[in-house]
């Protein structure tokens, strides 16, 4: 007889109610019970950061959090970033700057970016570097990721000005689910052609 607990939580803006075994890891709950496959398993001991999601707007390791602990909380996964067929500015920037290679750490890296930019909308390169050090990436050597975070900072603050509204508030602002919802309409559509002029530091 397996002990099961009923949990109710908001995931990417939707209320989900399920019964789960207490030992079920949040990452398994998201992936297997909700089909949110963008949360990835990397090390299952909290080091690599691949499983990172937002809980109430803050990054957490979903591989060392039990699903029962998410009861009553608000979770945002990478699936909550894009809306209405449009990328979130962070996604757009990661594409533009090639802030990914295999894509496995990418959802977590982007969620951490959302948090970094909420806490500091115009970070320095060094601040971004230290900020993303919580997330291991084995492919990129981080340089293009840092470029992407800075690019997202630029487009988001430009977007905030042109839209006349703050996309992502500072401090304990709205959850990123709300923030993501607010970014609707910014950034080009996914289908849009994306010719790029490489502006990397190359000679």
């Amino acid at each position: 007889m397996v002990d099961r607990h009923r949990i109710e939580l908001v995931v990417n803006g939707e209320t989900e109610t399920q019964e789960v075994e207490p030992r079920r890891l949040l990452v398994d709950f998201l992936r297997e019970d909700l089909g949110l496959l963008g949360a990835h398993i990397g090390c299952e001991h909290g080091v690599c950061g691949t499983c990172t999601v937002l809980m109430n707007g803050e990054t957490i390791r979903s591989c060392i959090t039990f699903a029962v602990q998410a009861d009553g909380q608000e979770i945002t996964t990478v699936e909550g970033l894009a809306s209405n067929g449009k990328f979130h500015p962070v996604q757009e920037a990661f594409w533009e700057k090639q802030g990914l290679q295999c894509g496995y750490c990418t959802p977590a890296m982007m969620l951490r970016t959302v948090e970094i930019l909420r806490e500091n909308p115009s970070p320095t390169r060094d601040q971004v570097r230290e900020g993303i050090a919580s997330q291991l990436c084995r492919c990129t050597g981080y340089q293009y990721i840092i470029d992407a975070v800075l690019e997202a900072a630029r487009t988001m603050s430009a977007g905030a000005e042109t839209d006349g509204k703050v996309l992502v508030k500072q401090g304990a602002g709205p959850s990123s689910a709300e923030a993501a919802a607010q970014t609707q309409g910014s950034g080009p559509a996914l289908e849009e052609e994306a010719e790029d002029a490489s502006r990397q530091k190359e000679s």
Binding site: R31, L36, L37, G38, A39, H40, I41, T77, V78, E79, A82, F87, Q91, F94, W95, E96, Q98, L100, C102, G103, Y104, T106, P107, M110, L190, A194, E195, D196, A197, S198, Q200
Partner: peptide
């Protein structure tokens, strides 16, 4: 040309379709 990678959208959306 340094075009944007054609594989990227699925990974950016969290739809990488990995083995797990």
């Amino acid at each position: 040309k340094s075009i944007r990678r054609v594989e990227d959208p699925r990974f950016l959306l969290g739809r990488g379709a990995y083995v797990d």
